[in-house]
């Protein structure tokens, strides 16, 4: 039972990541690999604030969203000037720079040692220390993110994003400054990733840079490409399949080290097969 709750918590956290990344990749058509970086910045911000100042989780969460959105502003100012493969490449660069900072700013992050003993969230008298209560918190936040992405994508703002994806030049002729749209959706998406990071940090209660590498971004990209770009249902389906699939490998009896690598093989081949046979994913409305 505990194991099933654990899987649901993971699905909840990654759904937040998938939904928010879908705003940038699916709706706006920008292949960003920096998402794991924002996920990490959010996680580190919450962990450091809670451990060093004894701050309440929810205040730390709000602050971490602010910090992550500001980092996204710094990165987005540069990245939003690009499109297509140069955008992707630039985002690779930022993913590696972010990871490098987590690893090397040892005064702040303790580098490869990571931050242990992060507390579970508490709100007044309610503690989210058991996995079941934590799952409820995760689901509430995931639903909140779902609702926000739904609202964003159905607004006139969301329609401009999709126009940028279809043809950036054309929408520019209509007088839209696409730069601001690309920058703002990047920041919104990063803020949501910070929520996932905060949940991850307080759920596992330990973080180190290895959870926020470029490969982790690739996993997230694989999830939403499988489920379908520019579709919220698709993002969730992709996350569920991608989280559950590797778990079966453990039941088949692969040793842990091999199972972890098998996960990467599956993710990689999944990307190739989807590109070959169904580039828009299971539910998707858009293909590159």
């Amino acid at each position: 039972m505990d194991y099933i709750i654990h899987l649901f918590i993971l699905i909840g956290i990654f759904s937040i990541l998938g939904l928010s990344l879908n705003l940038v990749i699916g709706y706006t058509g920008l292949l960003s690999a920096t998402h794991a970086g924002f996920y990490g910045i959010g996680a580190y911000a919450v962990a450091i604030l809670m451990k060093n100042t004894g701050m309440n989780f929810f205040i730390a969460l709000l602050l971490s969203i602010v910090i992550t959105v500001l980092s996204a502003l710094v990165i987005g100012v540069v990245l939003s000037k690009f499109k297509d493969d140069i955008y992707a490449l630039g985002s690779f660069g930022f993913a590696i720079i972010t990871y490098g900072l987590m690893l090397n700013l040892q005064g702040v992050t303790r580098g490869p040692l990571g931050i242990p003993g992060i507390g579970r969230p508490e709100l007044f008298d309610i503690s989210f220390s058991t996995n079941l209560t934590f799952l409820i918190l995760t689901l509430v936040l995931a639903v909140l993110v779902w609702w926000m992405t739904r609202y964003i994508t159905r607004s006139s703002y969301g329609r401009v994003l999709q126009a940028i994806r279809e043809n950036e030049k054309t929408i520019q002729f209509f007088g839209y400054t696409t730069y601001w749209y690309k920058l703002s959706i990047f920041m919104i998406s990063a803020g949501m990733a910070a929520i996932a990071g905060a949940l991850f940090a307080t759920y596992i209660t330990f973080i180190d840079p290895s959870s926020f590498t470029l490969i982790e971004s690739i996993f997230m990209i694989a999830m939403i490409i499988l489920g379908g770009l520019a579709d919220n249902r698709g993002a969730i389906i992709g996350v569920i399949i991608m989280i559950l699939l590797p778990e079966f490998l453990r039941f088949v009896g692969f040793p842990t080290e091999v199972a972890a690598q098998m996960r990467q093989v599956i993710y990689g081949l999944m990307l190739v097969v989807m590109m070959l046979y169904r580039p828009q994913g299971i539910y998707g409305k858009f293909k590159f």
Binding site: Q264, V265, Y267, L269, L271, P279
Partner: peptide, 18 residues
């Protein structure tokens, strides 16, 4: 180009893990 980029990323991830 983006489809090819994603496909090549997939190949990279899979081969590295193998």
């Amino acid at each position: 180009n983006m489809v090819l980029l994603v496909a090549s990323l997939g190949l990279f991830t899979a081969i590295q893990a193998i």
